[in-house]
Computed example of a mutant assay.
Amino acid sequence: MVVKDDEGSTVEPRMRDDAPTIRVSAGSGAGRTQLSAFDAALRGAGVADFNLIRLSSVIPPGSEVREVAFTDQLVGRHGDRLYCVYAAAHAELPYHEGWAGIAWALRDDGSGAGLFVEHDGPSRDQVDRDLTASLEDLVAGRSGGYTEAGRVFASVMCEREPVCAVVVASYVAQGWSAS
């Protein structure tokens, strides 16, 4: 594989031993409050027992992004840190919907590097448009080519109590050290 740096010189691709397999899952849930609905949605996505640490959406070189079921999300101990990108949508009024989505693009150089974008809103169309616009803007601001590689959506409709839909891209779970 031929990889060019920002100046156009040929370089060897750097595949990192510590690059994550990023797992993307979706979930939805209801509860008596927005917070408990969010927790139910995290359970549906397979990540409820983690402390979420939100990342800014850059995919490291050497990564692999995979859509997974909640049962195939990262495993850890109760309370571990989970470094992730996520979108969460809430609805509290009967017959209102919440939509969450994540899209990603990977560099064309085969390095595995890329970008995530995440949005939420009241309809799939709006979230889809926002994902497209953000991904186009982020890619336009960087050198090199990128190709969209995937999109995951979650949705939920409020019947009586608050609801939440989430999509989570999990990078790594990490315990707490005593130091």
Rank of each mutant, 00 (worst) to 15 (best):
M1V: 03
V2Y: 03
V2Q: 12
V2F: 00
E7I: 03
G8A: 04
G8I: 01
T10A: 05
E12G: 00
R16M: 09
D18G: 00
A19N: 01
A19V: 01
P20L: 07
P20I: 06
R23K: 15
R23D: 00
V24L: 06
G27F: 04
S28V: 03
G29Y: 06
G29P: 04
G29W: 06
A30E: 12
A30I: 03
A30K: 11
G31Q: 07
T33E: 10
T33I: 09
Q34A: 12
L35Q: 12
L35R: 12
L35T: 09
S36C: 05
A37R: 02
A37D: 05
A40H: 09
A41D: 07
A41M: 08
L42H: 10
L42M: 14
L42D: 04
A45C: 12
G46Y: 05
V47H: 05
F50P: 08
F50K: 10
L52V: 11
I53Y: 06
R54I: 14
G62W: 02
R66C: 07
R66S: 08
F70W: 07
F70N: 04
T71E: 10
Q73M: 15
Q73R: 09
V75T: 15
H78W: 09
H78Y: 13
V85M: 13
V85Q: 10
V85E: 11
V85R: 10
V85S: 05
Y86I: 02
H90R: 11
H90W: 08
E92F: 00
L93G: 08
E97C: 07
G98V: 02
G98M: 04
A100S: 15
G101N: 03
I102L: 07
G110I: 07
G112T: 07
L115Q: 07
L115C: 07
H119K: 14
D120Y: 14
D125Q: 15
Q126S: 13
Q126F: 09
A133P: 00
A133R: 15
L135A: 09
L135F: 05
D137I: 00
V139N: 02
G141S: 06
R142I: 03
S143Q: 11
Y146M: 03
T147E: 13
E148W: 01
V152S: 02
V152H: 01
F153E: 02
A154W: 03
V156Y: 04
M157A: 15
E161H: 14
P162G: 13
P162W: 06
C164M: 09
C164D: 11
C164F: 06
V166A: 14
V166R: 13
V167G: 12
V168Y: 06
S170W: 03
W176L: 11
W176I: 07
S177Q: 12
A178K: 12
S179A: 10
S179Y: 12
